[in-house]
Amino acid sequence: NNDALSPAIRRLLAEWNLDASAIKGTGVGGRLTREDVEKHLAKA
């Protein structure tokens, strides 16, 4: 759900053309954090 994404995370996902549903969020309530996105990018 994009409503739970911060503007910074939305921008990062758009910049790298990533799908938020493909990344497991570790923040409060399962929210994506910058670290989650960076770890996903490191694996790719």
Rank of each mutant, 00 (worst) to 15 (best):
S21L: 07
V37W: 02
A44L: 15
K43P: 05
I23W: 04
I23Q: 01
A42G: 08
G27I: 02
L18P: 00
I23G: 01
A4G: 14
E35A: 12
L32T: 02
R11Q: 14
K24S: 09
R10W: 06
N1H: 14
R34T: 09
V37D: 00
R31A: 14
K43N: 12
L12N: 00
V28D: 10
V28C: 11
R11D: 12
T26M: 04
R11V: 09
K39Y: 10
G25Y: 02
L13C: 13
A22F: 08
N2W: 05
E35N: 08
L5N: 05
P7D: 15
L32N: 00
I9F: 04
R31K: 12
L41D: 02
R10V: 10
K39W: 11
E15Y: 15
R31P: 03
G25I: 04
N17W: 04
K43Q: 13
D36H: 01
G29M: 08
D3W: 04
I23S: 01
A42W: 11
A14E: 15
A42N: 09
E35W: 13
I23Y: 01
N1Q: 13
D3Y: 04
A22D: 15
R31W: 06
L32E: 00
A14N: 08
E38R: 09
A14V: 07
E35H: 09
E38V: 14
D36N: 02
E15Q: 14
S6E: 13
L41F: 07
N1F: 08
L32Q: 00
R34F: 15
D19M: 08
A14H: 09
L18T: 03
P7M: 14
A22R: 07
K24C: 12
A4H: 14
K43M: 15
V28F: 13
S21Q: 10
P7R: 09
T33V: 04
N17K: 09
T33E: 03
L13P: 00
A20S: 07
V37I: 14
V28H: 09
T33S: 05
D36P: 01
G25A: 10
S21K: 10
R34V: 15
E35Y: 11
I9L: 13
K24A: 10
H40D: 01
H40A: 14
A14T: 09
K43S: 12
E35L: 11
R10N: 05
D19W: 08
A42R: 12
L32W: 04
L13T: 01
K24I: 14
G29K: 06
G30T: 03
V28I: 13
G25W: 04
A4W: 15
L41N: 03
G30N: 05
A14C: 12
A42F: 11
A8P: 04
L41H: 12
A20N: 02
S6G: 07
E38G: 04
A8C: 15
D19E: 12
L12P: 00
G25V: 05
S6T: 12
D3N: 11
I9M: 07
G27W: 04
A8V: 08
I23E: 00
A20G: 07
R31H: 06
I9K: 00
S6W: 07
H40E: 06
N17T: 03
E35Q: 11
D3E: 13
G30F: 01
T33W: 02
I9Y: 02
N1T: 13
T26G: 02
A44Y: 15
E35P: 05
A22N: 11
I9V: 11
A22L: 14
G27F: 04
I23P: 01
R34P: 06
A14G: 05
A20R: 05
K24T: 14
G25R: 06
S21N: 12
V37Q: 00
G29P: 03
D19L: 09
V28L: 12
D36V: 01
I23D: 01
D19Q: 07
R31I: 12
A14W: 14
S21G: 10
E15M: 15
N2K: 11
L41Y: 09
A8N: 06
A20V: 08
R34Y: 15
T26Y: 03
D3S: 10
A20T: 05
A14L: 13
G27M: 03
G29D: 11
H40M: 07
D19T: 08
N1V: 14
G30K: 03
D19C: 11
L12S: 00
G29T: 04
A22W: 11
G27T: 02
A20H: 05
A8D: 15
V37S: 00
T33D: 01
S6V: 05
A44H: 13
S21A: 12
A22P: 03
